[in-house]
Design a protein around this nucleic acid. Sequence first.
DNA 1: AGACCTGGTTTTGTATACAATTATGCGCTG
DNA 2: CAGCGCATAATTGTATACAAAACCAGGTCT
Lengths: 235, 235
Amino acid sequence: MSTPTRTEPIPRTGTRAGEIRDQLHDAIVDRRLTPGTKLVEDEIGATFSASRTVVRAALQALAFDGIVTLEPNRGASVSKPSPEVARQVFDARRMIEPGLALAAAARITAADVAMLEQHLATEAEAIAARGPSARRAEIHASGELHLSIAAIAGNEILSRFLRELVARSSLVIALYGRSGASSCARDEHGRIVAALASGNGRAAAELMRHHIDHIEADLDYQPAGEASIRDLLKL
Amino acid sequence: MSTPTRTEPIPRTGTRAGEIRDQLHDAIVDRRLTPGTKLVEDEIGATFSASRTVVRAALQALAFDGIVTLEPNRGASVSKPSPEVARQVFDARRMIEPGLALAAAARITAADVAMLEQHLATEAEAIAARGPSARRAEIHASGELHLSIAAIAGNEILSRFLRELVARSSLVIALYGRSGASSCARDEHGRIVAALASGNGRAAAELMRHHIDHIEADLDYQPAGEASIRDLLKL
DNA sequence: AGACCTGGTTTTGTATACAATTATGCGCTG
DNA sequence: CAGCGCATAATTGTATACAAAACCAGGTCT
């Protein structure tokens, strides 16, 4: 390999696949890698100076999360959730997140409130800024807020579920979103945080439910790609 | 779709690793492999005549489901969920399953009802019979009923979440259960199915919530193993 | 022209080899 | 006889080799 000497800063074993998985995860969630992109094992391995063995482990992990699709003998690619799956993602979020908000309201501390408001500030900053990098930061901050609320609720299993749902949501929005209701969403985020801060769990849960409705309402479940051709011919 | 029972489980990599994963999954869920059991790659490979490569993929998949724990450089073992994790499992089920029952009631067909009643019959049969094999069948049937209700609700993502939660529940019950409230549970299963069959979603959801409460009430969250020694010394 | 074979190329699936790490057993010492 | 090192065995982490499958391009036949 390219490392004849043992000067590696972090030679931690077992962390290599996790590193690659996280990098790919971030790249997919903030849309540097868009749905449908082929993920060739050799390329990724070359990029991260790792063997296919560890790359495969990383891809498998992402496949479990549903954001990468593995087709036998055909390799991995960034998932393209169907409209049906997209609906299921938001149904699942509607089922989980209001309850999570309710639980969070019962356990939230002053430090938690400060952290959430920090997230809001970061998000506002990203929204105000221009450029694709700011868009990525916005997506990241928005997801982070939802995940932070889940973390406050204190259930790691549900947090993990939500992590998957948030990641899949990003793919769904990339495919079916019609731009710009983000500012609306940010305002809703503020209200949710306010409700949580005042300990009003019921209100937070209700706001969260509406928030998810609004996000989904901004989508246009027209199948992308080949189906759009078919639809165009019909019109 | 008003799908039958067919819920495709989890993304499959090859077919080989999936086979091993499913076999191990079943073995863990119906307690032929108990919490803490070491899972050595070579042994499993020899058992299934497969190389360590595929075995590792299978173990990784099970680790992602939370029923196998992977410690770096130390290998895999059947998970021993802590009382804390156990509580989180049931909290998560309380958050998901009543809503799933509600959704199922709105979509259930006559064929679905017949299938659920078939499950009830199988379960009753297993309960009546003696021996460890019957116990395994009982556990299996009980889990299958919950998963079938999820399948009727028609959300594959939530079905997968519940699949994980049911599997983890089996580990939790193996560790902290104090035997025999199963018959009680079966009765509750019958009532839930009846509510679903009559289209009474609210009732089904409420019954489901209580059912989960009852399952958890039968647990004794005393840490097994070393902690019990400590407790014994204190008494 | 279009469908269809066909060879070479790419990419994945699986096994295996070797290095790194952890577990184990045994003799030694006090 | 308990405790401690140290050599050795087991086991995991990672890279690589090779076979099978899919992909691609060009040429042939109808």
